[in-house]
Design a protein around this nucleic acid. Structure first.
Length: 281
DNA sequence: GCCCAGGGATGCG
DNA sequence: CGCATCCATGGG
């Protein structure tokens, strides 16, 4: 990946197979995006970017160039990831299918809330619930609603949480809003991964899988390996593993993939989910 | 009507 | 610790 140009309202990049916007956005790490006439519109906190593609070049249009430069991790090369994953004997079709995926650097608070909503839910509905949350509690911007700030989140009444279509997760969100603090959130990046995970598990609505997603997507801890129903299928179908608990499966993969756990998990998740989706259609 | 979705809280042994 | 049960909601 190469940065061709960067000014006050645009970043122009050459992907060189190292940046595939469709895969980056649909691989399950982010919920606030939409496709409009071949372009992608991405929201993070109160910010927005429009991504246009022309062959191997992408234009990222935004007023917050520095924010989205970091958001898309444009300082980092993912060029060696497919090679590394091949060394870990990831199936070739999985590697080709996911080539161009990269992990976004998303806001920690937004990730905590988003993945509490994600539990035992499907991506389409998660997107709808988060959109409802933004509309009901976030600041109105030009053409969209911002993700709520922590203060707005904490000032939200219980009946609002119960009326955004979140089901029983509405109560989790309310109880979480009563206890979550900025100091707590600020304390997380400085902790090592096991300590950090332990603290996350103390939050209402955060169990092992959600904690691992927050570690991965909100804190950049690439050693974590979230296990959901899709990854469980991967473990039994592709890896022919013997029966294990989800914690056991996570440890099995994390011990094997090490620092490449996050990327391996993302490729496997994306492959499994997309291909099941195709089968159903 | 049943099953599933990026599972977690709670209670019980 | 592991395990069972319950939990809203919408789509296939």
């Amino acid at each position: 990946m190469k940065i061709l140009d960067k000014n006050n309202n645009r970043i122009l990049i050459q992907s060189e197979g190292d940046f595939d916007i469709r895969k980056i956005l649909t691989c399950g790490q982010i919920f606030r995006f939409r496709e409009v006439a071949g372009a992608y519109i991405v929201n993070s906190l109160d910010k927005v970017a429009t991504i246009l593609q022309r062959e191997d070049q992408y234009a990222i249009l935004t007023k917050d160039v520095d924010y989205f430069y970091s958001f898309f991790a444009l300082d980092k090369s993912y060029a060696e990831i497919p090679t590394k994953l091949a060394e870990f004997k990831l199936p070739p079709e999985v590697i080709e299918y996911g080539r161009g995926i990269r992990h976004l650097r998303q806001d920690l608070f937004e990730m905590i809330i988003s993945f509490v909503i994600s539990a035992n839910n499907n991506i389409k509905r998660i997107q709808m619930i988060i959109e409802n949350l933004c509309t009901r509690t976030g600041t109105k911007c030009n053409g969209y609603f911002a993700f709520p700030t922590l203060e707005q989140f904490k000032n939200t009444s219980r009946d609002v949480f119960l009326s955004i279509g979140a089901g029983y997760r509405g109560e989790y969100l309310y109880r979480l809003s009563q206890t979550l603090t900025q100091d707590f959130i600020d304390s997380l990046p400085g902790l090592d991964t096991p300590e950090c995970r332990k603290k996350l598990l103390g939050l209402m609505g955060v169990g092992p899988k959600v904690a691992d997603c927050i570690l991965l997507f909100g804190l950049g801890r690439e050693v974590s390996f979230p296990v959901d129903t899709w990854i469980e299928q991967v473990y039994y179908d592709i890896y022919k593993g013997d029966k294990k608990t989800r914690a056991g499966i996570s440890k099995y993969f994390a011990d094997y993939f090490g620092e490449y756990s996050g990327m391996a998990q993302q490729y496997l998740f994306y492959y499994e989910r997309e291909n099941k989706k195709l089968l159903v259609k």
